[in-house]
Computed example of a mutant assay.
Amino acid sequence: MEALALSILRENARRTGRLTDAVAYGERAAALADRVGSPEASSFERTNLAELHLLLGRDGEAERLAVAAEQTARSRAPRTLPYALTALARTRMTWNPPMARALLSRAASCAGQSGEQQALDEVRLATAELALRTGRPEEALSLLGTGAAAPVPPACGAGPWSGPAASRMPSRFWSGRRGTRSGRGGTSSSWRRPRCPRSRSVSPV
């Protein structure tokens, strides 16, 4: 239950603006996930941490964590891949919008294959965010207003923007064995993530 408690504490801290506290809880949850040997939990927790660091303006650390989450997801925790790719895309939105868009397209494909609505929603919100950042407000409004899914390409496999090379580029409730993303958190149990835009609450192990 320690993992669940840490995930809930992290999300509560994030929602109340105590981002430094949220990072501290997230780091403890990630360390616990590593200790119990849960790749899914490790990926979820690092995805959450990456987005917290983005909120704190620590772009380099956010990218490092997002790359680590994506690598773990790609090799050992495919269910978490849409979330990790979405976080990685957010770290690239400012300095490389085309790469961010490619990552989001891949995330949409992975989410579409899994059929997980929360993953699809997260990709859609991030795609709308990218549209706003790149001067396409009508596309953002369309995505946010209609709930339309982001474009889904045919494959969800790894691309040239992931892996070791990418890391060098300018940067659930725990209950069962499966994880359901909820902010993201967990230990040999399931991680479920509370459904709220850009919220990173409980992670799954």
Rank of each mutant, 00 (worst) to 15 (best):
P78L: 09
R64C: 00
W95M: 03
Y83T: 06
G147E: 12
M93E: 15
L120W: 04
V67D: 15
F44N: 12
G60I: 05
R106S: 11
R58A: 10
R168K: 04
L130G: 13
G157E: 13
G135A: 06
T127R: 14
R168N: 10
L125W: 13
G115Q: 06
A69V: 04
R79C: 00
Q71D: 10
G112P: 04
W174F: 03
T146C: 02
A131C: 04
A84F: 03
A150P: 02
M169H: 06
A165G: 14
A107W: 01
T91F: 07
R168G: 14
A89N: 08
S142C: 02
A77N: 08
Q117R: 13
G135K: 05
R133A: 15
V123E: 12
E61T: 15
T86E: 09
L130N: 13
T91C: 14
Y83P: 01
Q113Y: 02
E70V: 13
P97M: 10
R133G: 11
T91I: 12
G176S: 12
E116R: 14
P153H: 00
G57Q: 08
V152H: 00
E129T: 14
G159M: 07
A87K: 04
N48W: 00
A149I: 02
T127E: 11
E63H: 15
G157M: 01
E45M: 11
A102Y: 03
A107P: 03
E61P: 03
R136D: 15
G157S: 10
S75N: 13
S43I: 05
E129I: 03
L54P: 06
V152P: 00
A77M: 04
A149W: 05
E122P: 01
T127S: 15
A50C: 08
V123S: 11
T94H: 07
E138M: 09
E45L: 11
N48S: 15
A69M: 04
G60P: 01
V123D: 09
C110P: 00
A87V: 07
L120K: 12
A100P: 12
T80F: 00
D59E: 15
D59I: 09
V67S: 07
E138G: 01
L65C: 07
L144E: 09
A126L: 10
G176E: 13
R46I: 03
S162F: 03
A84N: 10
V152S: 04
H53S: 01
Y83H: 13
R101H: 10
W174S: 11
L88K: 10
A158R: 13
E139L: 15
S162H: 06
T47D: 01
L54A: 09
A73M: 05
L130W: 11
L141I: 05
M169W: 07
A155V: 07
Q71G: 06
L144V: 12
